[in-house]
């Protein structure tokens, strides 16, 4: 892989890292597989892009995106907690609804180019950095900032209550925590991070696209899992850091796979396979042992058969 491709993949990994932190928060901390992210990443991109095009300062536009994302998460959380809709279905409903909303935000066109528009990555131009370096500096700064912020949040009293809600909801209610509100808050924070990722992504790639969110949740899960395999720890700071690292590594893997000659359109299948393998590996472990066990007992049976067979033979001879 060329250095430029490597560099590009790392920057993408850092930007997508924000989304992965969001997925980590819902999937791992709240134990809530949240499909809203497929819609809210596009929402973030759409909000930022359309605001920038209408002349709003790119920083303001970028900060508006997480607000919209948080709203989407709150909708999903409310559907789940107030109306008892299962997590997956609540997420799907938000995601589908967001598809129409995103098109509205983008003024009806499925693609919003940001050509010759000011973006946040240009803010270091006056310091003499080329665009590629500013992208790297800004994305690494933002990613680390949110890793630390998320860590600090998760060790506050409120953050601990949020973690415990995902761990043991009944206990937390008996300790006086409105667990429904905790979940809504968690989903809001998560989708705010995802939308911020979308906003930065749109500015990095130079457009917002209605289909850019498809499969985000699976890519997020893949990154979380890759990170955990790499740096497995239940220490919360290591865990969050591992997840960011997972995001970078995942983008590097994707870049490598493309170099191997796969089509970009094959990537979704590739990601799905990664996540599937990771999810079924515990079962697979059981299976291999079962198969071994069966083989062993079969061998013993065969041995026994031969033994009895010998005896039978012996008897016949007598």
């Amino acid at each position: 892989m060329s250095l430029i491709a490597f560099y590009g993949a790392v920057v993408l990994g850092l930007i997508y890292g924000l989304m992965v932190l969001g997925v980590f928060l819902t999937f791992r901390i709240l134990n809530f597989p949240d499909l809203t992210v497929d819609g809210s990443i596009t929402l973030g991109a759409a909000v930022a892009a359309s605001l920038i095009i209408s002349g709003v300062n790119p920083f303001v536009a970028t900060l508006a995106a997480p607000l919209a994302g948080a709203l989407a998460g709150i909708v999903t959380g409310t559907l789940h907690t107030k109306f008892s809709i299962p997590p997956l279905l609540a997420g799907i409903l938000s995601m589908i609804g967001l598809h129409s909303i995103n098109l509205r935000v983008m003024g009806g066109s499925p693609n919003l180019p940001l050509l010759r528009q000011p973006v946040i990555f240009e803010c270091l131009d006056s310091f003499g950095f080329v665009l590629r370096d500013s992208e790297f500096i800004i994305s690494i700064f933002v990613a680390f900032f949110f890793v630390l912020l998320l860590y600090y949040f998760l060790i506050t009293e409120t953050g601990q209550a949020l973690r415990a809600t995902g761990d043991n909801e009944i206990m937390m209610r008996s300790l006086g925590v409105n667990t429904g509100r905790m979940k809504i808050m968690g989903l809001g924070i998560s989708n705010a991070l995802v939308a911020l990722c979308g906003a930065m992504l749109a500015q990095k790639q130079g457009f917002a696209d209605i289909s850019m969110g498809i499969g985000t949740i699976v890519a997020g899960l893949a990154s979380v899992i890759v990170g955990e395999v790499l740096l497995g720890s239940t220490r919360i700071i290591v865990w969050i850091f591992a997840v960011l690292l997972g995001s970078i590594l995942y983008r590097l893997i994707i870049a490598l796979v493309l170099r191997l000659g796969f089509q970009p359109t094959d990537l979704k299948l590739f990601t799905a396979v990664i996540v599937t393998v990771a999810l079924i590996s515990p079962f697979f472990k059981g299976y291999t042992e079962k198969i071994k066990g069966k083989f062993r007992s079969y061998k013993e049976k065969v041995k026994e058969k031969f033994k009895t067979g010998d005896e039978d033979l012996g008897k016949e001879e007598v």
Binding site: T156, E157, Q160, A161, L175, G176
Partner: peptide
Amino acid sequence: NLALALKRGRPRTFKRG
């Protein structure tokens, strides 16, 4: 866990647990 119980029925802040 003890820190969680220390706030039973009380508002939980954004200070370290």
